[in-house]
Amino acid sequence: MLESISTVPVSVEPIKRKYSYLSTSTFWSIRQGFPKRLSLVLVAMSLVIPLAIWTIVSTLQLVTPTFLPTPLAVISAGITMFAENNLWGDVLASCSRVLVGFLLAALIGVPMGLAMGTFYSMDSLFSPLVGTVRYMPITGFVPLIIIWAGLDEPSKILIITLGVVLYNVIMVADAVKFIPNEMINVAYTMGASRWDVLWKVIVPATFPSVLDTLRVNISGAWNFVVIAELLAAQNGLGFKIIQAQRFLQTDKVLFCIALIGVIGLGLDYALKWLSKVLTPWADQVRH
């Protein structure tokens, strides 16, 4: 019986089965390639459209100019500030605060993150603290910081450092945990000590992620420098913003905000370039 079934070809009515297919789409493509031209058009649109709306709304005075100045007014306000109000000094003041605060946050956060990611003991010791303090808004600490550290430079730098350091710790610790076990184990089978593993495997393996972490978190440092300068400062971009606000100079406010954005973008590209130069061996996709 079985043989007859398998040898005699039986003509069977094809069963009407409903299959489901993926419809074609260029715009909503998910990892199926994207035309370069469309990408460029969309990038241009994302910049041009908001700018156009701003220009139209402000030029036609649909909103009071005091609330929304024209783009041209903002640029000319910027030129005036550079020429007459010593804006370079403010840029320098803010940049140096960011630099010092951020470097401190890196000097504390990176080793602490490495230690927490590497050793269970350090993780157990520090993660309750880091995990709790992380959810406390740093802006809430600002009055305390001012009481403790005064109104001078140290308090501003402290605000930046405290704001950024925990993110450095958490992100670096996570990067260490992504190192495959075998990469560490193989070092032991070559006679490496734990110290060797820390310095010759864990540190170089996490180096690209550490650079990435710092690049992401420097934007946080810019947030906190403005907060610090809004409260108490004699110079800096945040100070300029609060000063302009007092005189309803929205054009100046907007220019300072845009300037911070441009500086941030520049730093981002510089750090991306740096990590490309320093880690030519890394083949992971950089964002």
Binding site: P180, E182, N185, V186, T189, V201, P204, A205, F207, A282
Partner: peptide, 16 residues
């Protein structure tokens, strides 16, 4: 220790 060298299935060469 280095008396028992090991070769793993996954690639464990150090990329750096």
């Amino acid at each position: 220790g280095s008396d028992r060298g090991m070769v793993f299935q996954g690639y464990t060469l150090y990329p750096w």
